[in-house]
Structures are given as C-alpha cells and as structure tokens.
Design a protein around this nucleic acid. Structure first.
Ligand SMILES: [Zn+2]
Ligand SMILES: [Zn+2]
Ligand SMILES: [Zn+2]
Ligand SMILES: [Zn+2]
Lengths: 147, 147
DNA sequence: GAAAACCCTGAAGTGAGTATAGAGTCAAGG
DNA sequence: CCTTGACTCTATACTCACTTCAGGGTTTTC
C-alpha cells in the first residue's frame, strides 16, 4: 500500500507517518521506481501500536522503549511493566494537579457573578492576590495540559 | 531593581522575563547607561499577574486578554468572566480525558502481573488490541498532558 | 587592576507534530 | 500524444512557552 492508503487506514496524517520514519519509529519504507514509499501490513501494525501509545499519552521516547521490546520478543518484559507504572504515575499526578487548578479557578470565578468595571472585577483582582498567599509553581511534565 | 532582583523576587527565570518583554506581555523596561533593564514595583506586579495566570495553566493568549482589561480599568469585565468559564472548561475536559486514560492504563497494567518474555507480555499485546475496539483519538487542547 | 558576578543580544533547541512551497509521478480522458 | 488531476516527494518553516547557548559588555568587590 502507498502512504495515502496507510494514512487512511490508520487515521494518521501523511506528514505524521513521514515524521515517524524520520524519527526512527517506523523503519524506512522501501520505494517504488518512482520513489513512492510502499508499506506492508507489518508497517501498518507497527504504526497502529505507536498511535495507540500516543492515545495513551505516552511520549515518543516512552514509545521507543516499548518498540524495542516488540523488536526483541525473547527479552524479559520487566522494563515494560515499570515503564507503564511510571506513566500511570505521570497521568495520576497530572490529574491531581488539574483538580486543584479547577477548584482554584472555580472559586476565582465566583468572585465576579455579575459583570461590572474591570478595575473592580473580583476575578482580575483575585488573580493578583492568589499569588500573594503562595500558590503552587508549575512544573514541567509530559502529560499535556488543558489546551 | 535590575532583572536579577526581579527574577529572584518573582521566582521567574531571567530569560523568561526577557521573553515576556519580547512577546509584549511586559512593557519594554527603561535602561541604565550601561543598557541594563530597570524595573519598578509596577513591573513586578504585572509579572506576578502573568505568572499567576500561568500557574492556572492559561495560555499566553488567554493572559494577553486579561492584561488588556487590566490596562483598561473602565471597560466592562464580561469577557473576563467568559474567558474564565471557557478555561475552566478546558481544565475540566482534560481531567475527564485523563481519568479515562488512567483507567485504561491500569487495566492494561493488570495484564502483566509477573514478568515474562516480551512476546507473551499482556501489556505489549494489549496495546495492540486496544486500538482494535476503537479507542478515543487524541485532540489538540491547551492544558498540558502528563509529562 | 583583576576576578567575580551580573547583564546584554541573537540564534538555536525542545516535543510532537502541522503547514507550506515547489517539484516529480502516474492513471484516465480527449 | 497530451493534458488534467490526484497522488507523492523533499526541504523548510511554523507552533508554544520557554530554555540554552555563544560571545560579548558592565558593575561590584577584593
Ligand atoms: Zn509518561
Ligand atoms: Zn468581573
Ligand atoms: Zn484555557
Ligand atoms: Zn509483561
């Protein structure tokens, strides 16, 4: 199959497939005489695996580790288990943070129930004060935020 | 105060302060003879506001809107309220997604309780199948993920 | 007067793609 | 045979919110 067909079948944009090849997640596909990539069902399966991992919000580095095990079927899978445990931790921590955030945002929102003048807006003024009593600092994690 | 002192006082890296100036979130600071930026308490307050918004996981574009209202204290604050409502929606939606993700990851994890050979790993094989019965597709949002 | 600490600019890198531009390939219709 | 249109190719730039780096200049302190 050619790249467009694989894209269709897997629900992956063409550019993303080429990107995965550049990044070494997919092996370089063989080419036709006209320099078109051609894919086998094995390619499609591997791409499906990558996409499923991304749907589980893993980083490409995390995916790379799992692919290494797929490529070495005789290796012990202990590292797979611990990678998953860590990643579950990433997700759980992010949920905790976002819940705190949501609470803070809702109480901020309650400070301005009827619109008035910006200078007196309970939200705008509330954001100023929120910093005063020491809020949490943002950290860098890999499970994405809200936007 | 000079940039280092402002950085210290606000818990913001120096480079980030300069970045905010380039992006127009902070006004260009006046300079000393030696071309050093000098800041007033007003600058510090504005920076604190920006940082607080970032702690609430807003995008810089969302922050820009709020700053516009800070700069026009006589405007009606209705847009502030709706921006906050939308952003609360961003956060709430992301929490919902991550909860589903966590559940899926935990059930995947349960498929391999004792390590064995990669070819037989319930996790690696489970990821393959997860895609088969139609999992959720990732979307682009602004509240960051887990990593 | 020299070292240490501070500051400057401009450019490039991060992650995980997305979006162009400009060119080449291939099947079908006239 | 020629053209149209769908498909594909590479290379490059853009996204976001910074961070890091290279290569300098300034100020303070000993
Ligand atoms: Zn993770
Ligand atoms: Zn208000
Ligand atoms: Zn938002
Ligand atoms: Zn296993």
């Amino acid at each position: 199959m050619r790249i467009g067909e694989l894209a269709q079948a897997s629900g992956t944009p063409i550019e993303t497939i080429r990107f995965y090849e550049r990044e070494g997640l997919l092996p370089a596909a063989p080419r036709t005489e006209g320099n078109y990539r051609i894919y086998t069902p094995q390619h499609a399966e591997r791409l499906g695996f990558i996409r499923q991992c991304r749907n589980l919000d893993m980083t490409l580095d995390e995916v790379r580790v799992l692919l290494r095990f797929k490529d070495q079927p005789l290796a012990a899978c202990g590292e797979v288990n611990s990678l998953l445990d860590e990643h579950i931790g990433h997700v759980a921590e992010r949920i905790r943070e976002l819940r705190g955030l949501e609470k803070e945002l809702r109480s901020l929102r309650a400070a301005c129930l009827t619109p008035h003048v910006a200078a007196d807006c309970g939200i705008l003024n509330g954001i100023d004060q929120a910093g005063a009593h020491g809020a949490a600092q943002r950290k860098r994690r890999h499970v994405r935020g809200a936007h």
